[in-house]
Write a protein that binds this DNA or RNA. Structure first.
Lengths: 334, 334
DNA sequence: GCAAGTTTGTCCTAGTTTTGTCCAGATAAA
DNA sequence: TTTATCTGGACAAAACTAGGACAAACTTGC
């Protein structure tokens, strides 16, 4: 369908005015012109009155260059790259940009500062403000803008995660109304849910069942995982919250999943959790790893170890493990 | 079917004076005339005394052009486009503001008639089959295709509604696994949630608070309502499920909503419902109507009448009432 | 570690195009 | 009568263009 087309081959016909390009890329018009003047980053066509007319291809280039810059690349270095080379650079960077420990291990010149934490903090403040004022349109706009500024994994970890924590905390302390929390949660449910459809699927992706066990009604963490792994070439089989262990196992079997990921948040000490996790582990084939994440996972540390489940320390850690699993599998087949 | 026509068809017969057009579109009368003078953006019919008479079609065009301008389009570029092309452009642009999993390239007028029931039945069977086989991709594909075939309101009523009922029934009878129901529900949550972002907003829309009361955890009905009313020029303030009456009232006040809509499904006889509805009605200003729908609404018929709440018999009935409310409001201003 | 050079975002001026607002006098509607 | 709309034109604000200046941040050389 058109969806596939737009993603895989980018339209090169010039038609967008500079203002729209600025809106979509998050760059200023001055900057877009300056980049053109100095490095010929893009060379837009012109209207009969000399107005710049950009193509979708140009916009995608600018968007990627912006992200590359955010990741610490220098403009001189990335300006001459083709779209494909740019994509490679950006996806390469996204693997390291947020993870501090990984960052220390590999060589990174001093200019490769990841996204300023202050900048993310500003974004989160703006998002919180739009929730307080019930400005839905602004909220959606900010989410979309945040996604333009950085790659999806970085966005989830530096903005969405902290935002959720902040909203939960504010509501608990009475600084925010329940109605505000509800509105924000409902919007985020739709927003995050749609993220995984941004990726294109070939049908060959390994599958991973993602859900929360019985009693765990909060699904946003699980949904974030679904969006995240889709970036790395997994096909999430997302079951929503509150799924009994038997059903998770049956689903993993029917879909031929290679892994299962659970999210535990609240209530942290639900007595059903040990039962459910034990049942799940016993019903699943032993070569299918079960990842247990979320804020409440640490409450069940001992159980998780005893059952041989995996408890990634961060979303990045989870990504890393899944990448290993995926690549091992490909080796095993070849 | 007379009801449907009156509600949803975009009338091409000219009858609105320029003042009303200005109010509905958020443009000034001078600007509307200037656009006509310079670019023939719309060419309204004239009364026998040369007064401009605009049709609903014209208003829709102007609304879309205003939004296209906000997105950074130039007037010269969008002025000559047909309504369909304009829809495409606006929808393409807004895709970058609000991410969606639904990307219908084909514009479906909101006034297309519903499909023959047999055809819908086939669609539903195909959807059910894709759920049973856990074929997520097929499921999404069928949903999108179904939406292309008919208008959004018709699609919700002839496909999504029956599909939800069927899935619920099949699971209850054990014909379908809980895992299947979960997968379908999670997908539908994302799909329906994204539907209201297909519409374009000018900022002048009257608002309606949509949610379910405390104890009612199923949100898909409420979400359908949100998608539905957005087609008719309302801005839904969607709060998700399980919202306490106090919070609904506070939210309605803060957002300046003109109406509230609640959905009741399960459990039908929750003892909290009477309390919550009574609280809500007493805390809301009396000129804000409260609509109560969903399969469980009939269980509370007497209560609803006593409190002076409104219980539309169908989604169409709800739309009709809201259209009346919206237009009364416009008269009140003019 | 400091100084000199480079890179990069922002801003300025001045001229052009595009777009929004306003006015005047005439006609029609309330 | 008062208010709303009409036409045609004037005017001004906003947006865009080209070229260049400038300062902050960063890199490099010593």
């Amino acid at each position: 369908m058109a969806t596939l087309e737009t993603i895989s081959s980018v339209d090169t016909s010039p038609r967008h005015p500079i203002r729209l390009v600025a809106n979509r890329t998050g760059l200023t018009v001055d900057l877009i012109r300056a980049w053109e003047k100095r490095y010929h980053v893009v060379e837009p066509a012109r209207s009969d009155t000399k107005r710049r007319l950009y193509s979708d291809y140009d916009i995608e280039r600018l968007r990627l260059i912006r992200i590359a810059k955010q990741n610490g690349r220098r403009l001189v270095d990335v300006a001459p790259l083709t779209l494909e080379a740019l994509r490679d650079v950006v996806s390469e960077d996204s693997r390291y940009e947020v993870s501090q420990d990984v960052q220390a291990e590999i060589y990174r010149p001093s200019w490769t500062s990841p996204l300023e934490s202050s900048e993310s903090a500003d974004d989160i403040d703006a998002l919180l403000f739009s929730v307080q004022t019930m400005d839905q349109h602004r909220f959606d706009q900010l989410l979309q803008e945040g996604l333009v500024k950085q790659s999806l994994p970085a966005f989830l970890q530096t903005v969405i995660g902290p935002l959720l924590a902040e909203i939960g905390e504010s509501t608990r302390l009475g600084k925010m109304r329940i109605a505000h929390e509800h509105m924000a949660t409902a919007h985020l449910r739709t927003f995050i849910g749609a993220l995984r459809f941004r990726e294109t699927y070939t049908g060959n992706e390994p599958k991973i069942v993602i859900t929360t066990p019985t009693g765990q009604l909060h699904e946003l963490g699980a949904l974030m995982v679904a969006a995240l792994v889709s970036v790395d070439g997994w096909l999430p089989v997302y079951l929503g919250p509150n799924t009994p262990a038997d059903e998770i196992a049956a689903c993993a079997m029917q879909s031929g999943a290679r892994a299962v990921s659970l999210s535990l948040t609240y209530p942290a000490d639900d007595p059903r959790i040990p039962t459910e996790l034990t049942r799940l582990r016993s019903q699943l084939e032993s070569n299918i790893p079960v990842f247990v994440g979320g804020s409440a996972a640490s409450h069940h540390h001992e159980l998780i170890n005893r059952l041989g489940l995996l408890s990634p320390k961060s979303l990045d850690d989870l990504r890393h493990s899944l990448n290993m699993l995926r690549d091992n599998r490909f080796q095993g087949i070849a």
